[in-house]
């Protein structure tokens, strides 16, 4: 039997909202340590990796490892029947379940839904836990804003790191521009900008993916960008007390 109860069901809704335009069908993996998900977009440019640890749930039980194939679109239809303040419980009964049950609980109502599961043949990529040569922490809303602004000018956005900070730049048909974000150690943790740069990087990415990734900014006030030259970038949103959502994006490489 598998059971996972989110005290804050709105959090689960935010996670689904954050990934819904990146991936269509996903395998949700559950085991004794928690729930995870790894899926790639159809063009193999972006990868979503979610980890939710059992300790972060109000209630968690998983006797046997389980793979649940879900359509994100259908999952969202069911989640629309829940309130943002509901507690949400996911549950399966059988060893090889064909449905995933949802209980939405508020002060005055309890709703039950069953979502049909699918069998998905999805390859899991072994993404190594590597050291990155530049790691930047900055406010997630600031990152969202910069991507939106620069995305107006060109479809590719450049990111350059140095000991002084991080610079975003674009060069398009209409002209070019850059935004430098200064390092600060303000007392407000959500406004802090930190750069750990062992080796500077200069990378280029398709901005439309960033604009999709930025839907995850509702999960955390800070975003962590981990980069190495000519390697996929990782954008991480820490989900407080529960785990993290990591979004990987392949760069455009200078030929």
């Amino acid at each position: 039997m598998f059971e996972a109860k989110f005290e804050d069901g709105g959090l689960f809704k935010k996670i689904v909202e954050a990934i819904k335009e990146l991936v269509k069908n996903v395998n949700l993996e559950a085991n004794g340590t928690g729930i995870s998900l790894q899926a790639m977009d159809t063009s193999h440019v972006a990868l979503v990796a979610l980890q939710l640890n059992e300790k972060g749930f109000k209630k968690y039980r998983c006797e046997k490892s389980l793979t649940m194939g879900l359509s994100i679109e259908n999952l969202q239809k069911i989640l629309k029947c829940s309130g943002n303040d509901d507690q949400i419980t996911l549950r399966t009964q059988d060893e090889e379940p064909t449905t995933l049950s949802f209980t939405f609980e508020s002060k005055n109502r309890i709703s039950e839904f069953q979502l049909n599961l699918m069998s998905l043949d999805q390859e899991q990529l072994g993404v190594p836990d590597t050291e990155y040569s530049s790691v930047v922490r900055m406010p997630s809303n600031e990152f969202t804003k910069i991507c939106r602004e620069l995305g107006n000018i060109n479809e590719a956005i450049g990111i350059e790191t140095s000991k002084e900070g991080i610079k975003f730049y674009v060069k398009g048909d209409i002209g070019e521009g850059q935004v430098s974000v200064k390092i600060n150690d303000t007392e407000k943790p959500e406004e802090r900008v930190e750069c750990e740069v062992d080796e500077p990087v200069n990378l280029s990415f398709a901005v439309r993916y960033f604009n999709l990734f930025n839907k995850a900014s509702a999960l955390s006030s800070q975003v962590i960008l981990s980069m190495s030259q000519d390697q996929p970038l990782v954008i991480e949103y820490i989900i407080e007390e529960m785990g993290s959502l990591k979004l990987y994006l392949a760069p455009k490489i200078n030929d």
Partner: peptide
């Protein structure tokens, strides 16, 4: 000239 790196190939070839 830029080309778009493919994530699947990148991680497979590691």
């Amino acid at each position: 000239q830029f080309y778009q790196l493919n994530l699947k190939e990148f991680y497979k070839n590691l």
